[in-house]
């Protein structure tokens, strides 16, 4: 699946054992997807940190509000 949107940092899994800050893709229609690089650390991935604040297009597997990205590009 291919998605486009802006990458923001948000606190997720609120109140749970694994509550943490994560990069979230917010699409033009307001849908939110947590971003993960396939085989990347789901909690903190320096390779994805550089995407914060940028508009990207990404391709990957979508599972219940999560995108497991296989590739991506920065749109601006």
């Amino acid at each position: 699946m291919i998605l486009q949107g802006r990458v923001v940092r948000k606190r997720v899994s609120l109140g749970s054992k694994s509550e943490h800050e994560a990069l979230v893709l917010v699409t033009a229609d307001g849908e939110e997807y947590r971003l993960r690089r396939q085989e990347g650390n789901p909690f903190r991935d320096p390779e994805l940190d550089v995407l914060e604040g940028k508009r990207i297009e990404c391709e990957g597997i979508v599972r219940d509000g999560l995108v497991i990205m296989t590739q991506w590009s920065v749109l601006g």
């Binding site: 054992k17 694994s18 943490h20 993960r36 650390n41 903190r44 597997i61 599972r63 219940d64 999560l66």
Partner: peptide, 22 residues
Amino acid sequence: CHGAESSPQYYGQPDGKEEYPV
């Protein structure tokens, strides 16, 4: 430990830091 969706790893965390080593 911490765990995540569709992940084959569990993760640790040091006291007082937002770091998540495998």
